[in-house]
């Protein structure tokens, strides 16, 4: 049902955008742009998905991605340039896991509500990034790192491949592993899972660990695409990830939503975003429209689906 609605929406929006941009959206370049730009939003949305499935939210994914980018950037440009991209990526992903442990600690073990914990950690993590960079941009990465965000393999953009891989892995994780199944059950009714022998704390802990890790992956794509790292890149993505999740059928109260829904909704949003770009909308107008679209989706769900 939801997928049908979503596909129809995609078709309508695509036609609308094609019309408004006088066909520019249909040019090969636009498709190329979508394929290069969508993965970043897609990966960040995947990072948001787990927490939302658990009935929580992670407001710190963008901050996490930025801090990871900065550490990778420093590793490549200042501290370990000899070790190049692979080491930097390992370092960055390691850091993302560390941040995940931090989030998991407060949310799963101390039982701080996710909204507040990730709010505080968002400020904290962004603060660390500011302390490290003093607000400056770190730019200029080696070519093999830039390949992640800008290269192609047999004509397919590499970031698109990265997204495809992690979306598939996420699909497998959610539908075929104990963790994934428990996450859905937990999101629906944490009391019942507790009484069924599910280790609730472990599920929540892993959810935020996974979320941070995916934010780390997104960070590789982001830093590579921008060829730069900074403390406050991409902050508008936060709203977009929540929007993409809600649009893709993830209930804000937890327990339902599938990966394919996320994938389609990310495509929808990217088509719209690319359309906005082609129409020459400013980022502020875009963000106003995103806010309105999210409200529209929420209202629509309330009025027609509930």
């Amino acid at each position: 049902m939801q997928i049908v609605a979503l596909m129809v929406l995609l078709g309508v929006l695509f036609a609308l955008m094609a019309f408004l941009t006088q066909g520019k959206l249909l040019e090969a370049q636009s498709f190329q742009a979508i394929a290069f730009q969508m993965p970043l939003l897609g990966l960040l949305t995947l990072a948001q998905m787990g927490p939302m499935l658990s009935g929580g939210i992670d407001l710190s994914i963008i901050a996490t991605a930025n801090l990871v980018s900065i550490v990778m950037a420093l590793s490549m440009t200042q501290f370990f340039p000899a070790l190049q991209a692979p080491f930097a990526i390992l370092l960055g992903l390691g850091l993302s896991l560390l941040l995940g442990i931090l989030k998991g600690f407060f949310i799963a073990l101390v039982s701080v509500p996710a909204i507040i914990a990730t709010l505080g950690l968002m400020i904290f993590i962004r603060g660390l990034a500011l302390v490290i960079t003093r607000g400056y941009v770190i730019a200029g990465f080696p070519p093999d790192f830039l390949f992640i965000g800008n290269g192609t393999v047999v004509g397919i953009p590499v970031p698109f491949l990265v997204f495809a891989i992690f979306a598939s892995l996420m699909y497998l994780l959610l539908s075929r592993t104990q963790f994934g199944l428990e996450l859905y059950l937990f999101g629906s009714n944490p009391v019942a899972t507790l009484f069924s022998g599910v280790n609730n704390r472990k599920v929540v802990f892993r959810t935020y660990l996974l979320s941070s890790f995916l934010a780390g992956i997104a960070s590789c794509v982001m830093a590579s695409r921008f060829n730069a790292a900074q403390a406050d890149y991409g902050e508008s993505y936060l709203l977009l990830t929540v929007l993409a999740c809600v649009l893709g059928g993830v209930s804000p109260s937890g327990g339902s939503g599938r990966v394919w829904g996320i994938v389609v909704s990310v495509v929808v949003l990217q088509v719209v975003a690319t359309g906005f770009n082609l129409l020459g909308f400013s980022s502020h107008l875009a963000s106003a429209l995103w806010g309105m679209i999210l409200l529209g989706v929420v209202l629509f769900n309330r009025l027609f689906l509930a």
């Binding site: 104990q178 199944l181 009714n189 019942a192 899972t193 009484f195 327990g255 339902s256």
Partner: peptide, 21 residues
């Protein structure tokens, strides 16, 4: 209803919840 079952999830997953291992 509250402690025993995850009402919104499938019968299947409610049955196997204790035996994932």
């Amino acid at each position: 209803l509250l402690q025993g079952l995850v009402l919104d999830q499938s019968v299947e997953n409610n049955l196997v919840i204790t035996v994932f291992e």
